[in-house]
Design a protein around this nucleic acid. Structure first.
Length: 427
RNA sequence: GGAGAGGUGGCUGAGUGGCCGAAAGCAACGGUUUGCUAAACCGUCGUACGGAUAAUCUCUGUACCGAGGGUUCGAAUCCCUCCCUCUCCGCCA
């Protein structure tokens, strides 16, 4: 959510910036609602002030045994008027809030202007895609062939877009999760946290999924419980409504959780395998940073995710998302795309974003310098480090051998009990 | 699931209809003094949204005592609903 005063004072700037994102806006409506809200507030607050004064008089009169009935009768009318105006203020507040909460974030000045993914800018590239002496297979073929990924039974017990991992496949997923968490906590200064995979709607509002993107989520019937689409939601909201100490910033947290997405509107897209499932696992990194340093932290966060891919020996490229392709709350996002030989393309494996104060304003996450300073909103950032479901795909496809087995990357072997491969099934 | 207790400012904790944005203590901050790594004393000490103003300074108004609604001229205080915490019992991974 953008700051009310900021939008009011910079309305042309906001209009231009949001147009770059391809957002159709109601800024004139904003202006109208905002000024009528202020008019109403002035009026009703004046009346309340009168009421409070009269209340003091009534109290004093009653105490001294005087007759207050005249004032009380007069106040009845004012109270009715206040009630009426309060209702209107409430309506106007709601509309203003609705307008503000549907505005996406203002992109940072360094974000390339563009309309779609085609306008994203490649920032750098690491590693060279391996030359295969055979035609590399896609992960769903390999998974089935090796008996480690079972889409059929996933569909049977749950439905489309669910998979079951067996044996080395299950172990690979677990190894990746542990490897990521260990590396982030031991080498990059993150603190590990294991939050609920279910949150309430207030948390989803805080990080910006609600109210606009409810259709992307799974809601538990008859409750205010929702399955998390990413650990970003519970972890960012850990500090909602709290004031942090500036000396503690940046705070770096990491969590390994399942993620659930309805994938509404993606029918037919990435239907094979586990690239786009309703449930997947992911290690998420979340940062709470001082506004003066949040862009340094974004670079660091992105670098932390890259380091994981480098340790796994997986080629990737880093893309700066353009204004038209960024997420709703993002001020700036880098996507990291890993090379998938089976698909013969780079595909997203991590998305690293600086939300600036877009989330912290909604969630009420502040910091204070010393015990005297005025509290300010922190900047929140997050990125996958990494999506284990997609890392699984990348390992399987990049490390497949001519005999159909999968070599285990060096870095993962300690998590595989010394085994260096997932063997091909004997026929 | 059953029974009970409770949610007040950074913390502890008073307050059962007007004199309460809220006592007192602690913590924090500024100062004075003594002096030494501490004490005493004085003062300051919430947030949000409006208005005035050149001003994020200052002045001023309103709202906020878990959330929402109701009663009333007037609600932290009375009533209703919900949420959360604690205790005991039951059940259970």
């Amino acid at each position: 959510m953008l700051d009310l005063a900021f939008v009011r004072d910079n309305i042309e700037l906001v209009e231009r910036k949001l147009a770059e994102r391809g957002s159709a806006l109601r800024l004139d409506r904003f202006r109208e609602v905002d000024s009528s809200r202020r008019r109403l507030l002035t009026e009703v607050e004046l009346l309340k002030s009168q009421r409070n004064k009269a209340g003091d008089q009534i109290g004093a009169l009653k105490k001294s045994g005087g007759d207050a009935s005249a004032i009380i009768a007069e106040m009845g009318g004012i109270s009715d008027r206040i009630k009426l105006l309060d209702d209107r203020v409430k309506q106007v507040d709601e509309e203003l809030r609705e307008i503000l909460t549907t505005y996406p974030n203002v992109p940072h000045e360094t974000v390339p202007v563009g309309r779609s993914a085609a306008d994203n800018v490649e920032v750098r590239r690491w590693g060279t895609p391996r030359e295969f002496t055979f035609k590399p297979k896609a992960h769903w073929e390999l998974g089935e062939q090796l008996g480690i990924l079972d889409m059929e039974r996933g569909a049977k017990i749950a439905g489309a877009r669910f998979g079951v991992y067996w044996d080395g496949g299950a172990r690979l997923e677990r190894a990746l999760g542990n490897f990521f968490l260990d590396t982030l906590t031991r080498e990059h200064g993150y603190r590990e946290v294991l939050p609920p995979a279910i949150v309430n709607s207030a948390s989803l509002f805080g990080t910006g999924q609600l109210p606009k993107f409810a259709e992307d989520l799974f809601k538990l019937e008859g409750s205010d419980y929702w399955l998390i689409p990413t650990a970003e939601v519970p972890v960012t909201n850990l500090y909602s409504g709290e004031t942090l100490d500036a000396a503690d910033l940046p705070i770096n947290l990491t969590a390994y959780t399942p993620c659930f997405r309805s994938e509404a509107g993606t029918y037919g897209k990435d239907m094979k395998g586990v690239f786009r499932n309703h449930q997947f696992q992911k290690v998420e990194m979340v940062k709470f940073a001082h506004p003066d340093h949040s862009y340094e932290e974004l670079e660091r966060l992105t670098g932390n995710a890259e380091a994981l891919l480098q340790k796994l020996g997986l080629p990737y490229r880093v893309m700066a998302l353009c204004t038209g392709d960024m997420g709703f709350g993002s001020a700036k996002t880098y996507d990291i795309e890993v090379w998938l030989p089976g698909l013969n393309e780079y595909r997203e494996i991590s998305s690293c974003t600086n939300f600036e104060s877009f989330q912290s304003r909604r969630a009420g996450i502040r910091f204070r310098t010393g015990s005297k300073g005025k509290s300010e909103l922190v900047h929140t950032l997050n990125g996958s480090g990494l999506a284990t479901g997609r890392s699984w795909i990348a390992v399987v496809e990049n490390y497949q051998q001519a005999d159909g087995s999968i070599e285990i990357p060096e870095a993962l072997r300690p998590y595989f009990g010394g085994t260096d491969r997932i063997p091909a099934l004997k026929k």
